[in-house]
Design a protein around this nucleic acid. Structure first.
Lengths: 320, 320
DNA sequence: TACTTCCACAACGAGAAGTTGTTACTGGGG
DNA sequence: CCCCAGTAACAACTTCTCGTTGTGGAAGTA
């Protein structure tokens, strides 16, 4: 029992003519005739009385008509319930204080009618996040996933490169520099606590230290942003790296300095993960927004080689 | 949106496995996979999360599941509403006092569980009755329709031959005969009032009179059975013809005689009209009952040549 | 009678939907 | 550690449904 067959019957019953129903449905009169005949054969009863002046429902057809209409209504409700865009888009941002969350927030303010749920998955593991996207728990997730680790059915789009800045205390030798080249950081101690081995963050900083010969100290207890800032403010040698635009380490109370890195500018490549073929309109709008209105990064940038090219969408074989 | 696709989704959601659903539905696992993929493509969302240990509904699938079930319920109700046998069979008997009505009544008593509505169409015209059958106003009609006048889509079955008997008053020359040959009636005046020209009755008696050289007076005002019986009782020359088993002219108060005709026995061929392919179970049972338990007629019978052979079913091209 | 309208039938091509055979992935047990 | 069982997807092929165009018959109408 096909919904199109029921719709055809209802249309014929309401118009009174096969040809009129065919016009309304955009098919030929012969196709209408076949659909009705197939429906009658399926049900085992005659539904329409054919005359030379049109057709009208038979007694059985009059009984069937309201049922057919109801089926169509329920089918429409069912399709509506899961129509892409019928529910808010669920975006996982990993951390509300860093650039992607800020960008999503800007998107939300500029498109108030686009319903959006910002969530945080409990895991920091990009593979688990991809799994969550695949299962539909979230629709999209900002991560830094290696291009060769993208599971089948997941598309990735590198939508936002966050330029790194050096964060130092007022006593640090580089405190008054206007720019710093990454190579100049060799020999300085860079401390980034709270990085769990195996996460995407750890992989990024491992690549960064390898590329420029830095010594990045990712170990040590993490007592939170306040403790980190206190330590930086009092130290003449410690430095850390933050993304431009991050609200993670912000307060100026400690007289900390943000010094842009350049020549090249290392960027943290925020990648958006989503299901291949996901047609949620808010997702489409978000991708378009970040692809155009998102912060433009300098020309001379550095990113780990395991990240795909900027703005490239990997399209593995989708489900089915 | 096909009901089978929804049924497949519901089955997978309930069993948790494509293969189990395939077994339950009697198709291959690959077919289930294709149906689900097509449904997901149609809706634009993923409904099931596939794992190596089976499948479970995704968040969207959980939303869709109750709607899918409801569609199936409504579809089942719709099919039930018009399922052949869901309503009583409507049989048109033309006249409650003649043999077919008696036979239908016996059928009803021997099969009390078979729901049956006996109706009388206003028209005595067999063609109009066939039209009513075609339109579904009635499911079957007892008539005497010429085989070559059967419209397309109508099946006819000659299920009951009613042997004719001569009905005369006590003073009639044949009043004490045990049998009468039709040829012996030549010269006698046979009066059958109330026959409207153009009806099936008129056609039958025209054939009968032609075949045996009878003079059948079909004209004259019809004052009803009582008046006819009064006239017969008082007349020494008038006679009329009735079917054996008819309750039409029955009361013995007038001392009327019923004299069987034989050698050959003229029979009024009651033919059942119904829609070709009508699967109403009560219709099937009625046809079987009349084909076996119906009154057997003598070997040497006469019927108009325009009636099909006994127990023959004409099967014109059905609709579609 | 000619003409129109209405629907059904026939033939055919495209595509859907089933089948079997095979592959890829996952998780558990020897 | 590797193999095996289980699950679902992919590929190739067959069948047949479903659409199209073209045509025909029946019935009303000018």
């Amino acid at each position: 029992m096909d919904a199109e067959a029921l719709r055809t019957f209802v249309t014929v019953a309401e118009t009174g003519h096969f040809q009129a129903a065919a016009d309304e449905l955009g098919i030929s009169q012969q196709a209408v005739s076949k659909r009705i005949a197939a429906l009658e054969r399926h049900l085992g009863v005659m539904l329409l009385v054919r005359t030379s002046r049109g057709s009208r429902p038979s007694p059985d057809g009059q009984v069937f008509l309201p049922y057919a209409k109801k089926v169509l209504v329920v089918v429409e409700q069912a399709e509506q319930a899961v129509r892409p865009g019928s529910r808010p888009l669920r975006v996982d941002v990993l951390n509300r204080r860093i650039s992607p969350a800020q960008a999503v927030y800007r998107f939300h303010r500029s498109h108030p009618e686009r319903e959006l749920d910002v969530v945080r998955l409990s895991s920091e593991n990009a593979a688990q996040a991809a799994q969550a996207v695949l299962e539909g728990t979230v629709d999209a997730s900002f991560r830094a996933l290696a291009a060769d680790q993208v599971p089948a059915g997941i598309s990735v789009e590198r939508l936002m490169d966050a330029p790194l800045e050096l964060l130092v205390g007022p006593g640090h030798p580089l405190a008054d520099a206007t720019h710093v080249r990454p190579a100049e950081l060799a020999g300085h101690r860079i401390w980034i606590p709270g990085i769990t081995p195996g996460t995407e963050w750890a992989a990024f900083y491992r690549s960064l230290s390898g590329a420029f010969g830095l010594s990045i100290d990712a170990l040590g207890p993490d007592f939170g942003p306040e403790a980190l800032m206190d330590t930086l403010a009092e130290s003449n040698s410690l430095a850390t790296l933050v993304g431009r635009g991050d609200r993670y380490l912000w307060p100026r109370a400690h007289d900390l300095r943000r010094i842009p890195l350049s020549d090249p500018t290392p960027v943290y490549p925020h990648v958006l993960l989503f299901r291949s073929g996901d047609q949620h309109p808010v997702l489409t709008a978000l991708r378009a927004y970040l692809g155009t209105a998102g912060p433009r990064c300098p020309q001379d940038v550095w990113a780990p080689e395991w990240v795909g090219a900027a703005d490239r969408t990997t399209e593995p074989a989708g489900t089915n």
